[in-house]
């Protein structure tokens, strides 16, 4: 199967009623299947808009998202910046609600177990910590067996140990059920820890500045020195990135 192609020519945004400006201009990159891609760019450059376009929540743009020349209608999992759980449904109900009739709830048990949330499955979201809610929203996205998983700065405002724990759980889950992940962040260290490839985006109007492969073996990703070394080298070799961070 060929790569998914993202090609957005223009995306306008009405900031006020009188002025229109482009948030995205000639943005082009490909999504090879089962690759973990991190999008890095300054805040406000339009990363969330891009994810909303891919998720087909926003259809008001010029361009196309295609695979083999055909428009794409894949199963998309979306992990939003806020977990967006239904507060009046339990953890388990929140996850089961996204399943269609063919998908069994057995996989929910497995996912709950792998995210260490079995004990909390009958709790309501307001009784969970932020880290736990984030893990629930990850399970919800994985439960539909997505072809593409969109993640919009999902680990912001988690403390370092919790973030590390969720990173590890995410990668473990992803290696078990591979699919394409598009992960938005502005934390370079986080990006290097998680991604196969980094895509750097310019400030608005957004386009791709450079794409960089992360060639650290998966088993060495929890080695802080290795990550830091890669980061230093990256910043030296690509001075254009410095302005984005």
């Amino acid at each position: 199967m060929n790569d998914i192609l993202i090609n957005i020519k223009h995306k306008h945004y009405d900031s006020t009623h009188s002025t229109q400006h482009n948030t995205i201009e000639n943005l082009k990159f490909s999504l090879p299947s089962n690759e973990f891609i991190c999008l890095i760019g300054p805040s406000g450059c339009g990363k969330t808009t891009l994810l909303n376009i891919i998720a087909q929540l926003d259809n008001d743009f010029e361009g196309e998202i295609s695979q083999d020349g055909q428009a794409l209608h894949p199963n998309i999992g979306y992990i939003f910046q806020n977990p967006r759980l239904l507060p009046w449904r339990t953890v388990r109900e929140n996850i089961e609600l996204v399943l269609n009739k063919e998908q069994s709830s057995d996989c929910v048990n497995l996912l709950l177990k792998s995210m260490q949330l079995e004990e909390s499955q009958n709790k309501y979201p307001q009784h969970l910590s932020l880290g736990m809610s984030r893990r629930v929203s990850i399970i919800r996205a994985f439960a539909i067996n997505p072809k593409i998983l969109l993640m919009d700065e999902p680990f912001v405002s988690l403390d370092a140990p919790t973030a590390r724990q969720v990173h590890e759980l995410l990668i473990k889950l992803w290696l078990q059920r591979p699919h394409t992940i598009l992960f938005v962040t502005h934390d370079l260290r986080e990006a290097i820890t998680l991604a196969d490839r980094l895509v750097f985006l310019s400030p608005s109007p957004m386009s791709v500045i450079s794409e960089i492969k992360v060639d650290i073996a998966r088993e060495n990703r929890n080695n802080e020195n290795e990550i830091e070394g890669f980061r230093q080298k990256l910043l030296q070799n690509h001075p254009e990135i410095n302005d984005l961070l």
Binding site: N52, Y78, F80, R84, R140
Partner: peptide, 24 residues
């Protein structure tokens, strides 16, 4: 609106959206 977007993204049917999202 955030929850409604979530429902669209996860392809909730109209009935499902009404019972689990709008009614509560």
């Amino acid at each position: 609106k955030d929850l409604l977007e979530m429902a669209v993204c996860y392809k909730f049917s109209k009935t499902k959206t009404f019972i689990h999202l709008i009614w509560p």
